[in-house]
Design a binder for these strands. Structure first.
Length: 428
DNA sequence: GACTATGATTCGAA
DNA sequence: TTCGAATCATAGTC
């Protein structure tokens, strides 16, 4: 006799003395001896315990037989009484548990990252926030941003798909268990509250699985986020063309290498970088140029010569009104849309003739003059009229170590403009 | 691996 | 806010 059978037999003996069962026996089985009763109960219990080992058809048949068994009501009563005794312990575990703080944290994070909750443009808000945190300006256009958004969107999609699967599985399983319990309630006493409790247990189990999903999603978002920010932090050299554009601007505005907002925007667009990167570049360039002028001399010469040649060629073409020529980038680098800057020589004449044509024109002229003067100073020739006014300092740095606010002859500067107006050299 | 170049960041001053 | 200056951190070169 195996343990199960022994257990059943012992229960059978025990239940023989049970008042409910005894009553039933008195009612329905009067006249039968004790051995026979024990045998009956043992049979029933054995049938119940072995029901799981049987095939579905077999079990169905057994179940039917059990339901029709004459002892079934008695057994039901016994189970009811046992249940009454144990119901207290069940009640003990029914208290509502407070919401898990970790789950709340995860939920909040997923909500903030735009993974959970309503669609926030594929997490673009979070991406923008991340970009802002990284100090990027205009990062909305960056490749990193779109990558981040795409990846976040992927995470969001996977999360929702998995969540849906879990919910579906949870619902299916809950329905299955509820049906099972309802079915079982024919043979054993099961109250609706118990079914409810079982449902909540199932939900708790599935919630813990959901929490794992949320945790994994959060981790994925964190990794993505850190990678995104790291990528921004990571230094990447600008491409050659971008550096050339920036250098051309820098050396053609050497007297005042402070691009205006518009110029920065233009440069940023041309170089496919952000405005803050342009600002950084100019900040670094100014300080490094100033620190080591000698080192940059060759570079300065090259760009100055290039610009001068461009300007001269433009000049040779005549002062066409619709010419897109620029003082600094008439070459491959593109234009900064500086009007009236075509005729360098005329500009120089104007300078010498003290015939200033207006702020913007003056600014553009200034660039040309910077370039020309630089070339001249480097070649050692031509020092008459220009030098007479104020010899060009190739470095564009005054004796105080700062950039010359008004590096050109006073005649160049508009009488209505202060030194600060030189910044308008980039006022396209 | 040392060194240099260079983009980014931080901090104080104006 | 912008700039200069110092510094950090990484890429590229030898």
């Amino acid at each position: 006799m195996d343990d199960q059978t022994r257990l059943m037999h012992s229960h059978g003996v025990g239940m023989a003395g049970h008042p409910g069962l005894a009553q039933h026996m008195q009612d329905g089985t009067a006249g039968t001896d004790g051995e026979g009763r024990k045998q009956d109960i043992g049979d029933i219990l054995q049938q119940i315990m072995t029901i799981t080992d049987q095939s579905l058809d077999e079990a169905q048949a057994r179940k039917h037989a059990l339901n029709c068994h004459r002892m079934k009501p008695a057994l039901f009563n016994v189970l009811c009484e046992i249940k009454e005794k144990t119901v207290l312990s069940i009640r003990g575990g029914q208290e509502e548990e407070p919401p898990d703080p970790q789950l709340m944290r995860l939920d909040n994070m997923l909500l903030a990252e735009g993974v959970a909750g309503p669609e926030k443009g594929g997490g673009s808000a979070a991406a923008a926030a991340a970009a802002a945190a990284a100090g990027g300006v205009g990062a909305d256009n960056s490749t990193e941003h779109s990558d981040y958004r795409a990846k976040l969107s992927q995470i969001r999609q996977i999360y929702h798909t998995e969540l849906e699967k879990y919910e579906q599985a949870c619902n299916e399983f809950t329905t299955h268990v509820m049906n099972l319990l309802r079915e079982q309630s024919r043979t054993r006493p099961i109250s609706p509250k118990e079914i409810e409790r079982m449902v909540s247990i199932i939900h708790r189990k599935f919630n813990s699985i959901q929490m794992q999903l949320k945790q994994s999603t959060c981790e994925a978002v964190m990794i993505l986020r850190s990678r995104f920010l790291d990528a921004r932090r990571k230094r990447r050299n600008f491409n050659k063309q971008a550096t050339e554009i920036l250098n051309e601007y820098f050396y053609s505005h050497l007297s005042n290498p402070y691009p205006s907002e518009e110029a920065k925007e233009e440069l940023a667009k041309k170089c496919s970088i952000t405005m803050s990167q342009v600002s950084n570049w100019f900040g670094n360039k100014r300080i490094r140029y100033k620190k080591n002028i000698g080192k940059f001399q060759e570079e300065a010469n090259m760009y100055a010569a290039r610009t001068a040649v461009s300007a001269t060629s433009v000049s040779a073409q005549g002062s066409q009104a619709n010419s897109p020529s620029t003082p600094n980038s008439a070459g491959s680098a593109g234009s900064f849309n500086m009007s009236n800057s075509g005729d360098l020589f005329m500009s120089v004449q104007s300078l010498n003739g003290d015939s200033y044509q207006g702020g913007q024109v003056g600014a553009n002229i200034q660039s040309q003059v910077d370039t020309l003067r630089h070339v001249i100073s480097q070649t050692g020739g031509y020092s008459d009229s220009l030098a007479a006014s104020q010899m060009y300092s190739p470095q564009g740095i005054n004796t105080n170590g700062g950039w010359q606010d008004a590096p050109t002859p006073s005649s160049v500067t508009s009488p209505t403009e202060g030194p600060g107006s030189v910044h308008s050299d980039t006022s396209n």
